[in-house]
């Protein structure tokens, strides 16, 4: 498969204030990490809002930085400046120190209100094309991406056409997790028995680092994945390939997937190598809603019935743990 990684962030001028972080962003490795180098409209709006709030807040913050040293120097012990030990109130100053923060907070509140509504992750994104529906399930310590319309699924790999927004539905088959692709936009919790929604889009083709940001046990730090925005044709190829070469999600496989293991452990347990090791073809309808409803998945899947609890017992790592 071809990767069309674009050059590093294009609009450097916009965030001169982020100089401290820039060298590292500019040296961006294989995947985009930060919303400060946004790769989609949501992250870009968040980046803009971020700098805007900083700029507005500086109105009250800068005077403290500047005036504190000045005051300490000018009114130092042994200095000659006026000494008024009983002076402790000035009506005019009170207006300033209460008024200006109120004003600032008022202005910020307007932006906050607008942006909160505009960037609500449940809002579908305006686009010419239909969004791509993906259902995301959090397991211990990997993500399963179900493409309901394509009837395929992948582990820790989210591939989508760059000209279509993503419409994600999220849940967790284990503890609470937080689904997060920083360079594209917001993070949202994924919780057992519940469905949260998230809409994202990419500006163009690229690879973006995704992660779970909510601690969920010892494999937590490995729960990273790559989201890839690709051209329409590449996406079709990808779907075709998974349908052809992906493995069947049968009962034993699902049981291992549902266990507590990291992606390398999972791959080893499934005895898989290569690109297609963790891609599944022929996903039945209703898998996602069955997971949300907490009904046994067994009936939906082919293969021999395995006696498994939905929750894997602890300290007995399932399947692939060496």
């Amino acid at each position: 498969m071809t990767d069309t990684t674009p050059p590093c962030p294009r609009r450097f001028g916009r965030f001169a204030a982020g100089l401290a972080i820039m060298p590292l962003l500019a040296g961006c490795s294989h995947a985009h990490l930060s919303f400060l180098a946004p790769q989609g409209p949501i992250a870009a709006a968040q980046r803009d809002h971020f700098w805007l709030v900083i700029a507005i807040t500086l109105v009250v913050v800068l005077p403290v930085f500047v005036l504190t040293p000045v005051i300490v120097w000018r009114y130092r012990y042994g200095g000659r400046a006026a000494y008024r030990p009983r002076w402790s109130f000035s009506r005019r100053l009170e207006y300033v120190i209460w008024g200006i923060p109120f004003l600032i907070v008022g202005i910020l509140a307007v932006f906050l209100w607008r942006q909160t509504y505009a960037l609500d992750p449940y809002n579908p994104l305006p686009a010419d094309n239909e969004p791509l529906h993906v259902q995301v399930v959090g397991y211990d310590w990997k993500w399963l991406f179900i493409y309901p319309d394509q009837h395929i699924a992948t582990v820790d790999e989210l591939v989508f056409p760059d000209d279509r927004p993503l419409a994600l539905e999220l849940t967790s088959d284990t503890v609470m997790q937080s689904f997060f692709i920083p360079s594209l936009g917001s993070q949202v919790y994924a919780m057992n028995g519940m469905v949260t929604r998230l809409h994202l889009a990419a500006d163009g083709p690229g690879r973006f680092r995704g992660e779970n940001s909510q601690y969920n046990g010892k494999g937590f730090h490995t729960q990273r994945f790559t989201a890839r925005a690709v051209s329409d044709a590449t996406f079709s190829d990808f779907v075709e390939r998974v349908r052809r070469q992906g493995r069947a999600l049968d009962r034993p496989t699902y049981q291992i997937l549902d266990g507590r293991n990291t992606v390398p452990e999972l791959a080893r347990a499934l005895d898989g190598t290569g690109d297609d090791a963790l891609r599944f073809s022929a996903i039945p309808d209703g898998l996602f809603s069955a997971i949300v409803a907490g009904v046994p998945i067994q009936s939906l899947l082919p293969g021999p019935v395995v006696t498994s609890a939905r929750q894997t017992p602890l300290h007995q790592p399932q399947g692939g743990t060496p």
Binding site: F50, I54, T57, V61, L119
Partner: peptide, 24 residues
């Protein structure tokens, strides 16, 4: 001095749309 900086990042975090990025 330092607390003012923390206050500023607090204002940032108070914005839900920014918090969606830096939470956790």
């Amino acid at each position: 001095i330092l607390f003012v900086l923390g206050g500023m990042t607090g204002i940032l975090l108070a914005n839900p749309s920014i918090d969606y990025q830096v939470h956790n």
